[in-house]
């Protein structure tokens, strides 16, 4: 039986993430194995990947991911200045993505206007 819900986000749900395997264990296993492989040291270090994940967490506005990757970044030896810059990168891409659509707006307005 799942926990009754009277709100949308609860910090206690983060460590329960593995419960997602209950209805589809094979799919969950593939996901978690893949996630572990993605975040392992490779051409990029785990520390760098955690900073990317932190930025992406902000871009997708996932509070679970923000908590998880704030802690992960600190544990990888990153500091608040690096983490703040990573969030600015996410913010810049989100903001830029909105603004660059202004060209679409201008194209369409140009087409419709005299």
């Amino acid at each position: 039986m799942e926990t009754p819900v009277d709100h949308y986000y609860d910090a206690k749900d983060l460590p329960r993430f593995p419960e997602i395997a209950k209805e589809a264990p094979e799919l969950a296993k593939k996901f978690f194995d893949w996630a572990e492989a993605v975040m392992a040291d490779g051409a990029l270090s785990r520390r760098e990947k955690c900073l990317i994940a932190l930025a992406a967490a902000h871009a997708v506005q996932c509070p679970y991911c923000i908590d998880a990757y704030t802690q992960a970044c600190l544990e990888q030896g990153s500091d608040l200045a690096e983490m703040t810059e990573a969030v600015h990168v996410a913010s810049y891409i989100r903001g830029g993505a909105t603004l660059v659509h202004g060209i679409q707006m201008r194209n369409q307005a140009g087409k419709l206007s005299l």
């Binding site: 040291d41 270090s45 785990r46 520390r47 802690q71 600190l74 544990e75 990888q76 030896g77």
Partner: peptide
């Protein structure tokens, strides 16, 4: 703070 240290070799 209240978090674990980085992996030693890295």
């Amino acid at each position: 703070g209240a978090f674990l240290p980085p992996q030693q070799e890295a």
